[in-house]
Nucleic acid binder design. Sequence first.
DNA 1: CAATTGATGTAATAACATTACATATCAAAA
DNA 2: TTTTGATATGTAATGTTATTACATCAATTG
Lengths: 140, 140
Amino acid sequence: MNAPVSAPVLTKNQSLVFDVLNRTDAPMSAYTILDKLRDHGFRAPLQVYRALDKLLEFGMVHRLESLNAFVACAHPESECCGHGHGHGSVAFAICESCGHVSEFHDHEVDHRLSDWAKRKGFKPAKTTIEIRGLCSACAA
Amino acid sequence: MNAPVSAPVLTKNQSLVFDVLNRTDAPMSAYTILDKLRDHGFRAPLQVYRALDKLLEFGMVHRLESLNAFVACAHPESECCGHGHGHGSVAFAICESCGHVSEFHDHEVDHRLSDWAKRKGFKPAKTTIEIRGLCSACAA
DNA sequence: CAATTGATGTAATAACATTACATATCAAAA
DNA sequence: TTTTGATATGTAATGTTATTACATCAATTG
Ligand SMILES: [Zn+2]
Ligand SMILES: [Zn+2]
Ligand SMILES: [Zn+2]
Ligand SMILES: [Zn+2]
């Protein structure tokens, strides 16, 4: 129920995809990533999707459901809940103007949603929390 | 900042789409809706998407981002926050086994997310909260 | 070595959504 | 009543996102 303690060894394609995502703080679609990697021999969407699947599994990348796009995990190393956000879920604030994404964790939100689930007998597998709006810079 | 007080008058296409969604509690994709309405003269995706856009605007339908699908609004008539969920956001628990969707509102969750936004100077426009997992029936 | 496993390459197709343009409807304004 | 503007609709084409199917390659292991 948590990410590997040590960083997993990435395959060549996984590294390439992760590096592309890690070099920008804006989310990217799989096809945009594909285009960025044509020079490195990428030809087909599946090369990207397969790498993304693994990176998601490793917890190194997040999928933004409301955007059909992906970002490198950017949560602070020493989050309140210790090693990564293995046990808690994460929320994203997405600026619709500049595309900037803030990743954060709110323990209390997590708790409230877990409580609701427990009361209803619902077994959560994955929670998505995304706030679309304007970042402080763009709202000014 | 809230849905119309009285139910809006729906056009023919809007009614057709809403009725389809309202007759099942499971989410449906736009193309599934299209197929259900072929008999009623629907031929193209846009007929569905246009109706959905309006129904979303009216607050009668919700889009499930993690599913690329739509459900009729099912929140209890007398929610804690009065008339519909005009001022608050709504959360969904989605069963990955049977497809059942529960819509609920948690004031405290809303508050925590708003607080975070306020602290960061982020101006929220729309918030998505979706919990994927197993409903009580399917988890048993 | 054979067998297994995981990663990769490629093509084709499926699923979801929008753009562009034409036409229709209806109610206010002239 | 005719014009005008706003909203709704019909249709085709296209764009974007994601998966299926199948072949190949490389490292591991019994
Ligand atoms: Zn993260
Ligand atoms: Zn911004
Ligand atoms: Zn609702
Ligand atoms: Zn279920």
